Simulated scan of single mutants.
Amino acid sequence: MDRYGRELKDKPLTNVNHLSQRPPEFFEMEADDIMFRENDAKWVYYPHTDALVKKMKIRTVNVHEQWWILGARMMLTYDAYKKLGLLYRELTSTGGHLYGFTGNSIRVKGTIQLPMTIGEEPYVVTHITMFTVLDQPCAYNVIVGRPLMREMRMVTSIHHMMVKFPTPVEVGFLKSCQY
């Protein structure tokens, strides 16, 4: 709310009218439009309330059929952390707890930076990502946070059960696996 209050008093913090003030692009194809067409929804069964299920690579390990939720940060269960072949001593200890909607707390084991790759060749993007490792079993192995989605310029469509993102070649996409 602080930002909106400041914008009422002062000029807006962002200005879409002046392209010279936009942040620099990481690669040329980033300026391409990302669009979803009805054909993108082929093989999606309606009505659905399914979560987006995607394939990704964390470090050098293919992590298949992980659930993507739009959380505030990147989270990884400790069980998935161990399955990636990572050792406890590689974690940066942070301690503390995360609190959910019900007020229940989950103990945080620590944090670690890992490369995360999405897409299929040649439409791939890799980003070094800070994961918070949770010390509790969870229905999801990986929770993808909004900040990463913003940095990777990902666009989701629940209707199409798809995520699209710019790559150095052209727009890449991940279709959801439905069960």
Rank of each mutant, 00 (worst) to 15 (best):
L19K: 15
L19F: 13
S20A: 14
Q21G: 07
Q21F: 08
P24A: 08
P24Q: 05
E25V: 08
M29C: 13
E30V: 09
D32F: 15
D32P: 00
D32C: 15
D32E: 15
D33V: 14
I34M: 10
M35S: 11
F36W: 04
F36V: 05
F36S: 07
R37F: 15
N39L: 09
A41F: 10
K42G: 04
W43K: 12
V44S: 03
V44E: 02
V44T: 12
Y45L: 10
Y45P: 01
Y46T: 02
Y46Q: 08
H48R: 06
H48T: 14
T49E: 13
D50S: 14
D50N: 14
D50Q: 07
A51L: 14
A51E: 09
L52T: 05
V53T: 08
K55E: 12
M56T: 09
K57C: 10
R59T: 06
R59E: 11
T60L: 05
T60R: 11
V61G: 00
V61K: 10
N62L: 07
Q66E: 12
W67D: 00
W67C: 09
W68G: 04
L70C: 13
A72H: 11
R73D: 13
R73C: 08
M74T: 03
M75Y: 09
T77N: 01
T77V: 03
Y78G: 00
D79E: 11
A80T: 14
Y81I: 02
K82A: 06
K82R: 13
G85M: 05
L87M: 08
L87P: 00
E90I: 00
E90R: 08
L91A: 04
S93N: 04
S93R: 07
T94G: 01
T94F: 00
G95K: 02
G95R: 05
G96T: 06
G96C: 09
G96Y: 06
H97C: 07
L98Y: 08
G100V: 04
G100R: 03
N104V: 06
I106W: 02
V108K: 04
K109Y: 10
K109D: 08
K109V: 00
Q113V: 15
Q113E: 13
L114H: 09
T117F: 07
I118E: 02
